[in-house]
Structure formats: structure tokens, C-alpha cells
């Protein structure tokens, strides 16, 4: 028996979530008294995963899947899960992970829980806590099949070092034409920008900024902090910012360490999508804005005064 974790990568480099799922997988393996096996696809050197407890890495190199392909990846994971006699498979609940995991579940006749936020509270029955009702609640869910698929919510477990002397085996995966029924034609991606999914810090602004011409200071603040930029829904609906920046219940979820909301009122649909962030800061002229009830720190003040000062002071702070 083993616990299989999928260590996702992009262009040959591990995503941060890969270290989190390995850390988590290691702990579950301890709970179950089995060992953890990490799977990588097209990563030349997987030894980084040993740091987080992966005793064994199964490495797949295949030039038919140089970019993410959910169906083909699901087939690869099935092949390896069968070979390793996996009793649990851990996949991150990122955009790609959420695409992949339900297919792996059906392939392995396994029950699946997505957006899981903690280690199983019990392994028999196998019970996990997961997000529900758009972060307004959690549900405790039993997975009753022999094999379990766990989708791990970002930043919910954290990255924990646990160095082991691991080994890497290569695996020759079989990929059929049917597995490649969905083909990537091209990818359009802002280069050199921190993405909302990856970011430790997210700077988000709302209608309080009055117009798209005022986003210069938001981008500058993000740059100083190495943060991603985001916005409320009306801001993207008005075309002030790209749709990809819309966060909230019907936009992208945010689970960063720090979320700074500037000129955002804090409507229930907005908060639902960002609540999973660890520390929330609000800057708003209106002391009655609902965001103050959801935030850890707040400044009642005008963004056009507070943000430039914040940028200046942060620059000084970063230098000291």
C-alpha cells in the first residue's frame, strides 16, 4: 500500500503546491502506516521532493504531454496508482488539479473529496474536512471506497520540510490517442507576473478606485510586495481590469497569506471567495463598510492618500 501524491510542475519546475501535497502526503502515509510515492511528469530532477518527505519518486518523461493534459495525466496517474497499489491519491485543488482529480477518481473507482483543508480526522472511517458553501462553512466528509482521492486546498496544510534520502524511478507511461482527445493549441499568459493562485500576497482593489487610470499605485504596491493583483467583480465587469483578476464567490478563489483590499466594500459574495486568506487588511473611507468585520487589520482612510504612503514606507522597510 502507498499514498500517491501528484507533484505538479510547469515547464520542468515544481509548483509550490507540489511541496505542500508532498508534505501532506507524508503525514497521511504516517497515519496509514504506509509510504509516500510522488509522481512527476516531465521534471528532469525531482530530488527537491525528498526534502518534503518523498521517499520514492516515480518520474514520467513523455513528449506527448509537455503541457498539462487532464485526460492523459489522469491515465498516467491511474497506471502508476495501480502499480504502486495506492490506497490514497493526493492532488492539489488548483485549476489544473480540479480538472484532473475527478477523472482519476472514476479511473480508480475511488471516492473523491475536493478542497480538503486538514489531515483526515479519522482514517476509519476515512473522514476529511473540506470547504463548502463557498467558504461560508466546512463539511466533514467520509470517503467510503477502498481507494481515496483527496484534493488539497491551497495553503491549508502548508509546506513542511521532512528530509529523507529518496530514490527516483522512471516510469514508461502508455498514452493512447483517446487520451489526447483534448489538445492545447496555444497558451496566452502574462509572463513575469505573479499569479493569484501562486501568490503569497494579493493586492485587490474595488470600485472605490473610481477608474482604471488609478491602478498604477495598485500595481506598484503589488510590485513592492511581490504580490499578485486582483479586483472585485464590478471592476472586471466594467472592463477596468481583466476578467482573470476577478476574485470572489463567482471569480477566482484566494487563499493567500495576506490579502489587502483597497476600496472594496466587502459584499458577501466577495468575502466568500477570499475568506480562506490568512490575514486580511482593508483600506476604505467608510468605517461602516462590511469588510471591516471580516478583516484583521484596517485603515479608515482615502486610498489615494494611504496607498502612496504605504508604498513609500514599504520601500523604506524593504531596504532596511
Amino acid at each position: 500500500m502507498s499514498v500517491l501524491v501528484f507533484a505538479d510542475s510547469s515547464e520542468g519546475k515544481f509548483k509550490k503546491s507540489a511541496f505542500e501535497v508532498v508534505s501532506y502526503g507524508k503525514k497521511i502515509a504516517e497515519q496509514l502506516g504506509s509510504n509516500v510515492v510522488a509522481v512527476t511528469i516531465n521534471v528532469a530532477d525531482a530530488s527537491e521532493l525528498y526534502t518534503y518527505g518523498a521517499e520514492k519518486v516515480v518520474s514520467v518523461s513523455n513528449d506527448q504531454i509537455t503541457t498539462f493534459n487532464a485526460k492523459a495525466y489522469a491515465s498516467v496517474l491511474k497506471q502508476i496508482a495501480s502499480k504502486e497499489n495506492a490506497s490514497a491519491v493526493i492532488i492539489d485543488s488548483s485549476i489544473d488539479g480540479l480538472y484532473l482529480a475527478p477523472m482519476v477518481a472514476v479511473n480508480l473507482e475511488a471516492g473523491y473529496a475536493s478542497n480538503v483543508v486538514a489531515l483526515p480526522s479519522s482514517t476509519s472511517p476515512f473522514t476529511v474536512k473540506r470547504k463548502a458553501f463557498s467558504n461560508k462553512a466546512f463539511s466533514n466528509t467520509i470517503i467510503s471506497t477502498d481507494v481515496k482521492i483527496i484534493g488539497l486546498a491551497k495553503n491549508s496544510f502548508g509546506v513542511h520540510e521532512n528530509p529523507v534520502s529518496g530514490t527516483t524511478e522512471s516510469f514508461d507511461a502508455q498514452i493512447t490517442d483517446a487520451d489526447l482527445g483534448v489538445k492545447s493549441v496555444s497558451v496566452d499568459k502574462a509572463t513575469g507576473k505573479v499569479t493569484i493562485a501562486d501568490a503569497d500576497i494579493v493586492i485587490s482593489a474595488g470600485r472605490g478606485l473610481k477608474g482604471p487610470e488609478n491602478w498604477g499605485m495598485i500595481e506598484e504596491l503589488a510590485e513592492v510586495l511581490g504580490a499578485a493583483t486582483a479586483c472585485s467583480k464590478p471592476v472586471s465587469d466594467l472592463g477596468w481590469r481583466p476578467h482573470g483578476e476577478h476574485v470572489g464567490q463567482t471569480g477566482k478563489p484566494v487563499a493567500s497569506n495576506l490579502y489587502i483590499a483597497i476600496g472594496i466594500s466587502g459584499a458577501i459574495q466577495h468575502l466568500a471567495g477570499i475568506n480562506a486568506s490568512k490575514v486580511k487588511v482593508v483600506i476604505n473611507t467608510d468605517p461602516e463598510a462590511p469588510f471591516f468585520k471580516a478583516a484583521d487589520y484596517g485603515i479608515v482612510g482615502d486610498a489615494f492618500e494611504v496607498v502612496p504612503t504605504l508604498i513609500e514606507k514599504l520601500k523604506a522597510f524593504k531596504q532596511s
Binding site: 475511488a110 471516492g111 473523491y112 473529496a113 473522514t127 474536512k129 463548502a132 467558504n135 461560508k136 462553512a137 466546512f138 463539511s139 466533514n140 466528509t141 467520509i142 470517503i143 467510503s144 471506497t145 475568506n275 482593508v282 471591516f292 468585520k293 471580516a294 478583516a295 484583521d296 487589520y297 484596517g298 485603515i299 479608515v300 482612510g301 482615502d302 492618500e305 494611504v306
Partner: peptide
Amino acid sequence: SSQTATTSFEKPAAKGAVKLVDA
């Protein structure tokens, strides 16, 4: 037959009051 079952729900832990900082 279903493969998973929800046994209970929880609300997120109540949050402490916001710390206000002067502008």
C-alpha cells in the same frame, strides 16, 4: 451507491475584532 457522505457541517471559527490603524 454514493462513495462519499457528509456527516456534519461546521462554521468557520469566529474572528476577533479588526485592529484599526490610524491613516
